Lab assay of single mutants.
Amino acid sequence: TTVVVGNKKYTFDNPEAAEKFAKKVAKKLGATVHKTNGTFKVK
């Protein structure tokens, strides 16, 4: 599962961990999490 934050990509074996990370980053940046085909995008 990939999490994309700006131009950085983070890969997780565990989708739950990926989602948690994405939400944490989004909260910090005041952004939102978008899920597309198993990829979480923070923007």
Rank of each mutant, 00 (worst) to 15 (best):
G6N: 06
D13W: 10
K9E: 08
G30E: 04
K27P: 01
K23N: 14
K23S: 08
V25Q: 05
K28F: 10
T1V: 11
K27R: 11
A18N: 00
V42S: 02
K24D: 09
K41R: 14
N37V: 04
K8I: 08
G30N: 08
F40A: 03
A17Q: 11
K35L: 13
G30M: 05
K9M: 12
F21Y: 06
K23I: 14
T39H: 15
F12L: 03
N14W: 06
G6K: 06
G38H: 06
K35P: 04
K24E: 09
V4S: 07
G30V: 03
K35A: 07
K24M: 14
V25N: 02
E16T: 12
Y10G: 00
K41P: 03
Y10P: 00
F40P: 03
V25I: 13
A26T: 02
F12Y: 04
V33D: 01
A26G: 04
V42M: 03
V5W: 05
A18D: 00
F21M: 03
T11Q: 10
Y10D: 00
F40M: 07
T2K: 09
V42E: 03
T32H: 07
E19A: 07
V33G: 01
L29W: 08
G6A: 06
A17R: 09
N37K: 07
V4I: 14
V33T: 03
P15A: 12
K9S: 12
A22F: 02
E16K: 13
K41H: 15
K28C: 09
K43H: 12
A22N: 00
G6V: 05
T1K: 06
F40V: 06
A18W: 02
N14H: 08
L29M: 10
N14V: 07
V3A: 02
T11D: 07
K23H: 14
F21T: 01
H34G: 04
A26E: 01
A18L: 01
L29F: 07
V5G: 00
H34M: 11
F12P: 00
A22P: 00
G38D: 07
A17D: 10
K20E: 10
K8F: 11
A26S: 04
V25E: 04
K23G: 07
P15R: 08
L29R: 04
K20A: 13
T11M: 13
K43S: 14
K20W: 13
H34S: 11
Y10I: 05
K43I: 15
L29H: 06
K28E: 08
T39N: 15
G6T: 03
T1R: 06
T1I: 09
K23D: 08
T11K: 13
T1H: 09
N37L: 06
A18P: 00
K28M: 11
D13V: 11
E16N: 11
K20M: 13
N14G: 07
N7V: 10
G6I: 07
T36Q: 13
L29A: 04
A22Y: 02
T11Y: 13
T32C: 09
V42W: 02
V4R: 07
Y10V: 04
T39P: 03
P15L: 09
G38Y: 04
T2V: 13
N14Q: 07
T39V: 14
A26Y: 02
K43T: 14
T2E: 08
T32I: 09
K28G: 05
K20P: 02
K35Q: 09
G30H: 07
T11A: 08
A22L: 02
V4D: 05
N37M: 05
K9N: 08
K43V: 15
V25R: 04
T39K: 06
K20L: 11
K43F: 15
N7W: 13
A31P: 01
K28A: 13
K8S: 08
A22K: 01
K24T: 09
N7E: 08
D13P: 13
N14K: 09
V25F: 04
N7Y: 13
K8P: 00
V33I: 09
K28Q: 10
V4T: 08
K9G: 05
V33W: 06
V33M: 05
T36H: 13
L29P: 02
T36N: 08
N14Y: 07
A22M: 02
A22C: 03
G30S: 06
V25C: 07
N37F: 05
K35V: 12
A18T: 01
A31R: 04
K9R: 13
L29I: 11
P15S: 10
E19N: 05
A31F: 11
A22Q: 00
F21A: 02
K27N: 08
G38C: 06
G38T: 05
T36V: 15
V5T: 03
T39Q: 15
N7I: 11
Y10Q: 01
G6F: 15
F12V: 01
T1S: 10
F12M: 03
T1P: 08
K35N: 09
T2A: 10
T11N: 10
V33F: 05
N14L: 07
K27S: 08
K24N: 09
K20D: 09
N14D: 12
E16W: 13
N7G: 07
K20R: 13
F40G: 03
F40Y: 10
Y10A: 02
V3K: 00
V3T: 02
A31T: 07
V3P: 00
T32F: 07
K23Y: 15
E19Q: 06
D13I: 11
G6D: 04
V42Q: 01
H34N: 06
E16H: 12
Y10E: 00
L29T: 05
V5K: 01
K43L: 15
F21S: 00
G30D: 05
K41D: 14
K9W: 12
N7K: 12
G38K: 05
P15T: 09
K43Y: 15
K24I: 11
H34A: 07
V42D: 03
K8E: 05
V5H: 03
G38R: 05
T11E: 08
L29G: 03
P15Q: 09
K8D: 04
A31H: 06
T1W: 15
V42G: 02
H34W: 08
V3Q: 01
K28T: 08
V25Y: 04
A22I: 02
L29Q: 04
E16L: 12
